[in-house]
């Protein structure tokens, strides 16, 4: 019987050691995230004090390190703890702005390492090299033949990506990524190794 590949529970890196593989990948799927969609969404989010990216397929970070991604003129994906925003929303106060829960629809995988664009080139047709795909850019495209949202970011001071894809096929995607990163000395790590709380220099929030 063929041995099972690295799975979501594989944790080969000690988060306290401070060292990371050349290419590291962590599952952020248990971290909070949500979305809003509708013609009135940008106005309502701006009224809540959020700085929004001016164009679709761009993202910005707020002063808490949370990521605000604009997927289209009227659709936003918010990575991080936006519980206060969720509480503030209601049909009456947010006209033409509708919540789009993402916690159970999309898996969230974070990749960190300067070889990340090379690794992604094996499974994604979009040129994700840093000089073509700057920090904050978003590609909504196909990754390992799955629909996915790719967001460029600096994670622990290295090139990196947030990858969001349908949660029902996320084990397949995880296996594909594990396979693709082998030749770049990549490995899965525990979430804390890439999350903000455990490293001052880390950008990834959750």
């Amino acid at each position: 019987m063929q041995p099972r590949r690295q799975s979501f529970i594989a944790v080969p890196t000690d988060p306290c050691s401070g060292s990371l593989p050349a290419l590291a990948m962590a599952d952020f799927s248990l971290r909070p995230r949500l979305g809003f969609k509708g013609a009135g969404t940008a106005d309502w989010l701006a009224a809540q004090g959020l700085s929004l990216p001016p164009e679709p397929n761009q993202s910005v970070k707020d002063d808490q390190g949370r990521l605000i991604a604009r997927l289209s003129w009227g659709e936003f994906l918010l990575l991080g703890d936006f519980a206060a925003l969720q509480s503030a929303w209601s049909f009456e106060t947010a006209p033409l702005c509708f919540p789009l829960p993402r916690l159970h629809s999309h898996a969230w995988i974070v990749i960190s390492g300067d070889a990340a664009p090379k690794m992604m080139a094996k499974i994604c047709g979009v040129d994700l090299r840093a000089h073509k795909f700057a920090q904050g850019r978003i590609a909504q495209t196909s990754v390992a033949r799955l629909n996915a949202i790719v967001i460029a970011d600096r994670i622990r001071g290295r090139l990196g990506f947030h990858l969001l894809s349908d949660i029902s096929t996320s084990q397949y995607l995880w296996d594909c990524l594990c396979d693709a990163m082998l030749e770049f000395d990549g490995a899965p790590v525990v979430l804390e190794a890439l999350a903000k709380e455990s490293h001052g220099q880390t950008d990834a929030q959750g």
Partner: peptide
């Protein structure tokens, strides 16, 4: 590979359409 230009997302592989 055949490429189509999406007005929202830019050039993409035809398999995405």
């Amino acid at each position: 590979m055949k490429i189509m230009n999406c007005p929202l997302n830019g050039p993409r592989n035809i398999s995405e359409f």
